[in-house]
């Protein structure tokens, strides 16, 4: 299966679940900003969760089907349209050769993940297919997608993918009658982000901690795949100690010298020297990955143990979805 990129939109990269083995050499994790959507797009095709997907940013992209393809998409950056027909999300879709697919406005988030049966075939670099542009590694030549890029799916596809494909293959665009609903896994309030107090939580003034957990923070224009800069009530330092650089990770919220906050995202540095007020619960990182400049969020505190339980629960739910697809076709 093959597609050609006609317009990549503001930024499109190949991503997966990230690169975890080279953190000691300061190679960031990278991977999908909204890991949940990337995984849902893969699961509904019978793919491995870690199969490579395209991460599109906002609407405006366009690509053509160079062969018959079976795709799926998830994430709230755009709605996919094929020859003026809206394609439903979070389910397998068969698209015949020669069709053109456009990403249209109509959703509140910022990123959309397009998966293909078998995953997109790009080389594995340091254990991941995810693109990290700053070092020029992963994805297509370590860069964002460009007009004219041809993307192929991996030759080996799972038995489930093959059966789903056979069940949908007709002469026209055709989609499954079922879908995986990622919204059933997400909290109702998408603007309330759960956090665990960070290692330096007690380094800040009491009033600032109250502000942090009760007033809104807005994403600034500087936000990107490395981090989200948050504008709102300044955080005052109570302890004026210097922190020796130590490991940070996506979800870490750092407080800069001026009292501003940076929420670290997928491409963040592996170490940092700013005190850490909180760590976003991993289950809420997909919500953060969909934020765009101007969006306001609130933070609410949970315990480390709750965050871990939510993590395990999310993984169990994804297992259930994976089994549901499997049992439908095996």
């Amino acid at each position: 299966m093959r597609i050609s990129i006609i317009k990549p939109g503001i930024m499109a990269t190949i991503q997966d679940m990230g690169r975890n083995a080279y953190l000691s050499q300061a190679v960031p994790i990278s991977g999908a900003m909204d890991m949940l959507s990337a995984r849902i797009a893969n699961i509904c095709l019978g793919n491995d969760d870690n199969a490579a997907v395209i991460e599109f940013t906002y609407a405006g992209a366009e690509f053509g089907a160079a062969t018959d393809v079976m795709l799926s998409y998830a994430g709230s950056g755009a709605v996919l349209k094929c020859d003026d027909k809206i394609l439903p999300a979070e389910r397998p879709v068969f698209i015949p050769k020669g069709s053109s697919i456009k990403l249209m406005n109509g959703q509140a988030g910022s990123r959309t993940y397009v998966a293909v049966a078998g995953g997109w075939d790009v080389p594995m670099v340091l254990g991941s297919r995810g693109t990290y542009i700053a070092a020029g590694i992963g994805g297509v030549d370590g860069r964002a997608l460009l007009p004219g890029d041809i993307l192929s799916s991996c030759v080996d596809i799972s038995t489930i993918s093959q059966r789903i494909f056979n069940s949908l293959r007709v002469d026209a665009t055709h989609h499954a009658g079922w879908s995986l609903r990622s919204d059933t896994l997400l909290p109702d309030n998408r603007k309330m982000i759960r956090v665990v107090p960070g290692p330096e939580f007690t380094w800040f003034e009491g009033n600032s901690l109250i502000d942090f957990l009760s007033t809104p923070y807005t994403l600034s224009l500087q936000s990107n795949r490395m981090g989200c800069h948050l504008e709102g009530a300044k955080i005052g330092h109570l302890v004026k100690k210097e922190l020796l650089s130590t490991a940070v990770t996506p979800g870490t919220i750092q407080v800069t010298g001026g009292g501003g906050m940076i929420l670290l995202m997928a491409d963040c540095q592996t170490t940092g020297g700013y005190p850490r007020i909180a760590q976003v619960a991993a289950v809420d990182m997909p919500l953060c990955g969909q934020l765009k400049p101007g969006d306001s969020i609130y933070f609410t505190g949970i315990s480390r143990r709750e965050a871990e339980m939510l993590y395990i629960e999310r993984e169990n739910n994804l297992d259930t979805l994976r089994h549901a697809v499997k049992h439908k076709f095996l």
Binding site: L23, T246, T270
Partner: peptide, 20 residues
Amino acid sequence: YSSVPAYTTLSVFFDPSQVA
């Protein structure tokens, strides 16, 4: 997954599902 040495710390990264 991996471990990250820094000035005074060593951070250890793992897959919680496998640990659990």
